[in-house]
Design a protein around this nucleic acid. Structure first.
Length: 221
DNA sequence: CACCAGGCAAGTA
DNA sequence: TACTTGCATGGT
């Protein structure tokens, strides 16, 4: 494991402890949540999931059978509800038609092939696909999000112009292939991002402050 | 009141 | 290929 990545993980873990992201929820719930949370607070996404649960719709075939207009209203609190309803439909159509609604069957597919398939679905981009693979499937894929990018860039470990895959490679090349590690690491990065990296960087008390370059956090030019 | 949250695709040049 | 824009609710 790369020394800097290990130090970062250790500092974050010492500060925040295990995050238990998406714990105790079914893989299907994670799948749906991955779409609902796109560019949205988890709080809002969860409201939509709660509504689906109340109507016993957290099951592939049941949710697939819901008409588009009805689905729109159900997930409204998540925001972007018209787009997200269509994205859920395309994801559900894929799951039901290709794997008969079985996530277990879906995850039998090899990691690289499944990732390709997911990315072909309208509404599933790199982060959503990787979230599904890691958090629903338990597969060793590092998830990159806005916080991940911001934390690494402000420490000078990647450029602010680094794309998704450059950022992801930073972790792949420095960490063992370990889904549990990737899971915890990403969750910790989101936590430190929320606490310290939102809007303007406030690095006082940040567990990663000691790892900043001399002169403090870098800013986007 | 303004700002933004665990992105993505479609449109434009 | 490389930018830009639309999408929408709810919390701070």
């Amino acid at each position: 494991m790369h020394p800097t990545l290990k130090e970062m993980f250790d500092r974050l873990y010492a500060a925040y402890g295990p995050r238990h992201w998406w714990p105790g929820e079914s893989p299907f719930e994670v799948l749906i949540g991955a779409v609902l949370v796109q560019n949205t607070s988890w709080q809002n996404a969860e409201k939509a999931i709660d509504r689906l649960r109340r109507d016993d719709l957290l099951e592939p075939h049941a949710l697939h059978a819901v008409p588009l207009e009805e689905l729109e209203e159900l997930i409204r609190p998540a925001g972007y509800y018209r787009i997200k309803a269509r994205r859920l439909c395309s994801l559900l159509r894929f799951l039901v038609e290709r794997y008969n609604g079985s996530l277990e069957a879906m995850f039998q597919t090899g990691l690289a092939d499944l990732r390709e398939e997911l990315l072909k679905i309208k509404g599933v981009g790199p982060e959503t696909a990787d979230s599904i693979l890691l958090y629903a499937g338990g597969l060793p894929v590092f998830v990159v999000d806005a916080y991940t990018h911001r934390v690494l860039a402000r420490h000078g470990w990647i450029g602010f112009d680094a794309d998704y895959y450059q950022t992801q490679d930073h972790f792949f090349s420095g960490l063992p292939q370990d889904a549990a590690l990737y899971n915890e690491y990403h969750a910790l990065l989101v936590e430190v991002g929320k606490q310290h990296c939102r809007k303007q960087p406030r690095c006082e008390g940040c567990p990663l402050a000691a790892m900043l370059p001399p002169g403090g956090p870098l800013e986007q030019e």
